[in-house]
């Protein structure tokens, strides 16, 4: 028997004729021509805030010959990168190229995966991150995830959670309040939630939730902020708000952002690193990498040829 759907399609005269015609041509991929990079138009404040080159601060983290293995599979191969204060490092590359793994290695979150193994050295302000107590390291190198993931508690408690030490004595709400408010203000969320800080965090909108997660990460007072595709679950408007926020935060922090959105990498990235199959293919200032890529693979990728 056939479903109604099939019956309709069979009766549709257009379908009939097209199925008899030549199949549509497959787009030919031409790697020998120069790539077409979409010209960036100033669409929102993130564009006007574009960095002035060469203003990067001191190097906070250094990745030196980093390799990460999941069992026998080498997810990141011999990558070396500097992470500087006052600039945004954007990691781009196709899915499964190791950029998220690289990001998670920076605050030792890969250690939660039983099969993961790491070689090479990562230093934070000259100290090997293996020599820093892991909870202290993660407070200094904080992370924002792809999915907004507030905890099932109030807005206030979400931010305060990051501040409360694990000691036996918990600071009171009164002591914490100015810090919570400060973190919410830095994340640009305070005005929207000020009227009710005891509002359940999970009732906020997606964009607000993600800014709450940024506030939470900022409350710990990090020196480096890691962002794993922070806008991929958000609408364009919320994305624009968060991109502006990234450019503001850049002044006081070193930011590493993983993104699938090349335009976003171009808009916020002072330096862009392109990874492919675990290799670091190219590392260059954002404008340079997008307008004049040196490696052929980079050219193909930013030209939108494979992804």
């Amino acid at each position: 028997m056939i479903t109604n759907d099939e019956r309709e399609r069979r009766m549709d005269p257009e379908q009939q004729s097209s199925s008899g015609a030549v199949p549509p041509p497959i787009r030919r991929i031409r790697v020998d021509t120069s790539p077409t990079v979409a010209p960036s138009r100033p669409t929102h404040a993130a564009e006007t805030l574009r960095p002035t080159r060469g203003a990067a601060g001191p190097e906070r983290m250094t990745i030196d010959g980093l390799s990460v293995f999941y069992g026998p599979k080498e997810a990141v191969k011999q990558v070396s990168l500097p992470i500087r204060q006052g600039e945004v490092l954007a990691l781009i590359g196709p899915s499964g190229c190791g950029k998220t793994t690289l990001l998670r290695t920076l605050n030792r979150l890969t250690e939660l995966t039983a099969s993961a193994r790491r070689e090479g050295q990562i230093t934070l302000d000259g100290t090997d991150i293996d020599d820093i107590e892991v909870t202290a390291l993660r407070r200094r190198v904080s992370m924002v995830f792809q999915q907004p993931n507030p905890f099932p508690m109030s807005v206030f408690d979400n931010v305060a959670y990051a501040l409360r030490e694990q000691g036996s004595k918990r600071p009171s709400r009164k002591v914490l309040e100015p810090y919570v408010v400060d973190a919410l203000q830095r994340a640009g969320l305070y005005d929207e939630v000020a009227h009710d800080l005891s509002h359940p965090a999970l009732r906020l909108s997606g964009g607000q939730q993600q800014r709450l997660c940024i506030a939470r990460a900022l409350a710990a007072g990090p020196e480096v902020l890691l962002m794993d595709e922070p806008c991929s679950a958000l609408d364009p408007k919320s994305t624009a708000v968060i991109e502006d926020l990234i450019l503001e935060l850049r002044e006081s922090l070193a930011i590493v952002i993983v993104t699938h959105n090349l335009q976003q990498a171009h808009r916020v990235g002072d330096h862009v690193a392109f990874m492919y199959l675990g290799d670091l293919v190219e590392y260059a200032p954002g404008d340079e990498l997008f307008t004049n890529p040196r490696a052929e693979r980079t050219r193909d990728y930013v030209g939108g040829v494979f992804g």
Partner: peptide, 20 residues
């Protein structure tokens, strides 16, 4: 990723279990 968010804030496993 909710657990990781807690670990990512420098929280111990015990704190994550109890508070999150």
């Amino acid at each position: 990723h909710v657990r990781e968010a807690s670990y990512g804030l420098g929280k111990t496993r015990a704190a994550t279990i109890r508070r999150v």
